[in-house]
Design a protein around this nucleic acid. Structure first.
Lengths: 204, 204, 204, 204
DNA sequence: CATGAATGAGTCTTCATTCAT
DNA sequence: GATGAATGAAGACTCATTCAT
């Protein structure tokens, strides 16, 4: 469906793919342009033909990877808010989470580096839009926080999964059959819906 | 109560305080030893008198700040597991969250930098111990994941709050009176208990 | 004859020349990359474009300067051993000694710095090959030692000459006309042949 | 006999011993005061109580270790020169060579570091005195060079032995029984006397 | 006698970036 | 489209040295 998910042809696209891969694996600061260039088999200078700056690569990454979220947002903005719509938003957001994993991971684990970057802000704005759609109009601060937490549960689950895999079979969840990326997403969806369910009536 | 929380006298202690402050504000990589030294009014070389390496400072930070968590773990290990114990564990963990905020933040937002650091592993181990205590023995992978997510909800809430404050009054939650650090913690506690409640009976 | 002896064009070659010059004058450790860069009129970073590491420069030096020795070794390996071949080996080795002086000097006076360096080992291997050719097959340990001493007499002579020149006209040999580089080499050759002559019949 | 050869009591003496050991093993520049202090179980500052400067330690080393050479020089200065005296000088010089090995080694392998050091000059002067005694008055430059080379043959042999031991059993001389320190010295003495024998009648 | 704390100068090295070709 | 060569700024780290205690 989305044309942006598979490795693009053309150097520019390949740079984005490799950069996201490395950034999410090792971090933004920890990844040098030389590494990216090396893995691509080109020179550093070639990167500068396609991107004005290292930060600009992040720009490209987000631009390319945020499209699916934009679709969800667009859909949400056309609906009248209701608990059903809210849950559907979360489900749609969840739908792409698995593929977006590297992006989410990159975004969260590199806050310090992205803090002052214009590219980071772009992504943040999208998340804020999503959050607003989830909690609906005139929400209390607590409700807003819940909405945000619901959405971030996906990231948390993904984060934990990664830690887990890195730690080997001894680790906290990886007891064999269950915790694959998909199953982690499933649990995260469950949790997200639970959290969101109490948005209206925080105390029963 | 704990004597380790407020700025210690002695240069070594002051280094730890300032370093944690800067690391959690700007990130580990983004903070140079010069900055730390400057803010302390000493030379870089003085840092090296007290710590063998930049990484070693992180070591010191964790050693110093993880003591409260260790207490909770110690308590938990003495109890027979039960849903009540589980909830109490979460509450005790929550209790110090507000003060520990910078540490949690630092830990999460600097994953890339800490990944290969022995200091990072130390902290990770403590979290794993907490998670195991929360889900109790013989838990399913899904239950384990939930346990982890419950505990991490504090971090998520803190993370969101920070983003929020940084963004100014326009932002998602900060509508004036409510979302202070304490209130964020409160919501996070609520959410954590909800998530944990379903550990045993994931679907009702 | 050999095209590698005079200053090469191209920065890489110039770095090697200047580095050997400085290393042999002041020592490896005592020569900073800044000095090399300054004398070349480039920045330190430029050195790193051409060499991965300070040690790598040594690598380059040896690679470039050891070619003449390799030729002698190659010749020696084709001959059937005999006292005449042995003496010819020494003469051929002596032939280039004067030009190779800085290299020999650098190699000997920087043992501590080169000890753990892969570059140093490369040179050592060449010397060992030469020594083996000189003493021939099935030599007694004493014979081997003599062979080695014969070859090293060139270094000793060169070393003494340098000390001498540094010390001014008051010094041990420099009584005016005689001891130039060539004449020192000549004496060294004489001595080397004497030492080698007794390899077979150590005691008469 | 000499009281200076075994580890002295008193910190000052122990510093000298340890320093010589490390300097000759790893080199002067390559050995930091911290290493010396650590191996002694004291602090760097303690070294400064006993020596004004790092270079001053070298001073101490030479002062302490050169005494035996001074004795030989003193004896030589009382004799009327003759070939027999010359040979006896060499034999006396050889006598202590084995014990003095680390000093000789240190002196030669650290030329670059000692070049500008007043401590280095002291030792050099002693060697010059020895050389002058060996070649006798009114010697030709070539004769002087030979005299020097004769004496330095001990260093060469020691140097080669060390290289050898470092290289393991595969190496050039170490074929089992022979080349110990003593036997290397023996060969060196033989060679030294040969070289010296031709001082008068360089060409037969 | 010796230490604990600190410094200033300097080291090697890495990086994002530029530009002529 | 891309490269080879180079730069300037910065970073972590080391070292000899000092001095009050």
């Amino acid at each position: 469906m989305s044309t942006t998910q598979r490795p693009r042809t053309g150097t520019r696209g390949r740079i984005i793919d490799v950069a996201l891969e490395l950034f999410s694996e090792q971090g933004y600061q920890e990844t040098s342009l030389r590494e990216i260039a090396d893995r691509l088999g080109v020179t550093k200078a070639a990167l500068y033909y396609h991107f004005k700056t290292k930060d600009d690569i992040v720009h490209g990454i987000i631009e390319q990877a945020a499209a699916p979220i934009d679709e969800v947002i667009a859909w949400g903005e056309e609906q009248e808010w209701s608990p059903e719509v809210r849950d559907e938003l979360i489900r749609r957001f969840a739908a792409g989470s698995a593929e977006r994993a590297p992006l989410l991971r990159f975004f969260h684990e590199n806050q310090p580096a992205l803090r002052d970057s214009s590219a980071g802000l772009e992504f943040k704005e999208r998340m804020i839009a999503m959050i607003k759609l989830v909690h609906g109009p005139e929400a209390t601060p607590a409700a807003r926080l819940r909405a945000a937490m619901a959405l971030f549960s996906f990231h948390t689950a993904l984060f934990l999964l990664k830690q887990d895999l890195a730690a080997g079979p001894e680790a906290l969840c990886a007891t064999g059959t269950v915790t694959t990326l998909d199953q982690a997403t499933e649990v995260a969806l469950e949790v997200a819906l639970e959290i969101a369910a109490r948005i209206d009536s925080p105390r029963d």
